[in-house]
Nucleic acid binder design. Sequence first.
DNA 1: AGATCCACTTGACGCTGTCAAGTTACCTGA
DNA 2: TCAGGTAACTTGACAGCGTCAAGTGGATCT
Lengths: 204, 204
Amino acid sequence: MTDQTVKKPHHHGDLRAALIQSGIEILSEAGLDSLTLRRCAARAGVSHAAPAHHFDGVAGLRGAIAKEGFDRFRQQMLQARALGTQTPKGRILSMCRGYLDFAVANPALFALIFSCGPMSQLEDDMNAGDASAYGVLRETCAPFVPDGADPLVIETQVWCLIHGFAHLLLAGTFGPCDDTADHHALFAPVIALLEGIGTTPTPK
Amino acid sequence: MTDQTVKKPHHHGDLRAALIQSGIEILSEAGLDSLTLRRCAARAGVSHAAPAHHFDGVAGLRGAIAKEGFDRFRQQMLQARALGTQTPKGRILSMCRGYLDFAVANPALFALIFSCGPMSQLEDDMNAGDASAYGVLRETCAPFVPDGADPLVIETQVWCLIHGFAHLLLAGTFGPCDDTADHHALFAPVIALLEGIGTTPTPK
DNA sequence: AGATCCACTTGACGCTGTCAAGTTACCTGA
DNA sequence: TCAGGTAACTTGACAGCGTCAAGTGGATCT
């Protein structure tokens, strides 16, 4: 509600940002269930009702944290993509690596990002153009989109594979999920489905 | 904790089952956030502390509801598969149809099933053999598994596609998600990736 | 300097999960 | 038949939660 206040307030340097940061720390230390308005306030050193002046209830705080998390998510994908082989397929694989690494390194934040019911967060992001996490996906998939075809199809194919896999991974389907295990070895044969990407006639 | 008591208790015919049923109703009427021990108790007509004798806290109740939900999920996939074309590929597509229809018809229950952190629920199910939701997936994928290959690869490919898509669908990525909209039309080109199923050499 | 406003505090409310203790209904054994 | 015991449930209490209303105090403006 009271978002986008650029000027710094009086007492606390920038309480809004501090609360978001506190929330992210709580998420990574104690998990999704421990993310609480009162706990964020306490960690930021303010009273329990202070967050109400910066976020529209607990949903607002979660949304703001998700937004920040989404941005870090996007940056990690960008960085991973830049480090890999610069072929169209190599860029997709590197981006997926960034995706998985982020999910494994920040499971609670990842869960928060993708748990906001009717995901206003993701939808906003999709409409935000190239400067968004979805924009990274769109860019990376673009070379595989046949002329005249709807890019949404290939984007969705890639996103389904990578997100489904991240979900299974975090759920522990493939065994306990610490960041030491090599989850990419498992992902390789799965993402191999993309060998046929853009060549399937995308029926209808 | 005090599970698996077969004999019927004295007062309430079968409070444990009644609480699970109440929980499922609350989920579909009011969403995931409204699922509460006290609300389930009230709907079942017992005192607020009664559920503690049947479930190990709120996590136990959620787990029990997820287990029941998983079973209904499995039955819906089985039923959908039985109604479709009885070819290997037709059976996969029909199963996916059942998967999507369940997710759209029971979004909160679906979210609960797949939100149980380190998904002890799903893991139990995977180890439960063919009489489980994962068993349905395994059966249906079996015809596509090359000789000597690990069935997990193809199972994961299919599961990633269908689950990722269901997630995007429920998140509203493709627009509002009522059960009147034809989400299968969107899914068709995505699942077309499986045209190459079993033929890709599943590298390594 | 005095008025104003905004950021934050204080205190209260109902709802939540959980625990301890009490009550009631059933079942057992003599 | 009737005492005793146990399992099923109730009652009452507690801390923590989100949220609201009212109060406070520093910064800013005239």
